[in-house]
């Protein structure tokens, strides 16, 4: 099938089998490698993207289901003018990434969390981020970075 998506604000198309996961449409067909393959069964969260604003695991969304919808990946999370998202700034400030492989997915999950819960507590963070694995164990820095970004967003809006 010909799948048509709005990816990071741009209309993109690809010719794929309808059951091709969105993850591989993004990576293999559209060349967007920021979204990572980790498990293929929605267990690790490395492939998290936003589909119409909701965090989803791209490894488990068939292209046919994504057709016609809006996708945001880590490459499109910033302000669109080269500026980073406050979470990306916070991730750098807290030196969160180690190997870094899971971090695009972590940040996309965190962005979805902040969009609906602007000032999450640790319990809310743990609940929202529970599906994102990190084998380097950067979890406590992830918590700190989310708090930092939340505070920064609130400050700038105040």
């Amino acid at each position: 099938m010909r799948v048509a998506l709005t990816v990071n604000g741009e209309r993109r198309e690809a010719e794929v089998a309808a059951d091709t996961p969105l993850l591989w449409v993004l990576r293999d067909h559209l060349g967007l490698t920021g979204t990572k393959y980790g498990c293929g069964i929605s267990e690790c969260g490395a492939c998290t993207v936003h589909l119409d604003g909701e965090a989803v695991r791209a490894c488990s969304v068939p292209a046919g289901q994504a057709d016609g919808r809006a996708v945001t990946t880590i490459e499109g999370l910033g302000d669109g003018q080269g500026g980073r998202h406050p979470l990306q700034e916070a991730w750098i400030a807290e030196n969160v990434p180690q190997c870094g492989f899971c971090q695009p997915g972590q940040i996309m999950s965190a962005a979805a969390l902040l969009a609906r819960t602007p000032a999450p507590d640790d319990a809310a963070i743990d609940a929202a981020m529970g599906g994102n694995l990190c084998r380097c164990g950067t979890y406590q820095r992830i918590r700190r970075a989310i708090h930092r970004a939340a505070a920064q967003v609130q400050e700038s809006e105040a």
Binding site: G34, R84, W91, I92, G100
Partner: peptide, 10 residues
């Protein structure tokens, strides 16, 4: 390496 690992370019 933090910036590239936070913006997906690594």
């Amino acid at each position: 390496d933090a910036p590239a690992k936070a913006d997906g370019t690594a």
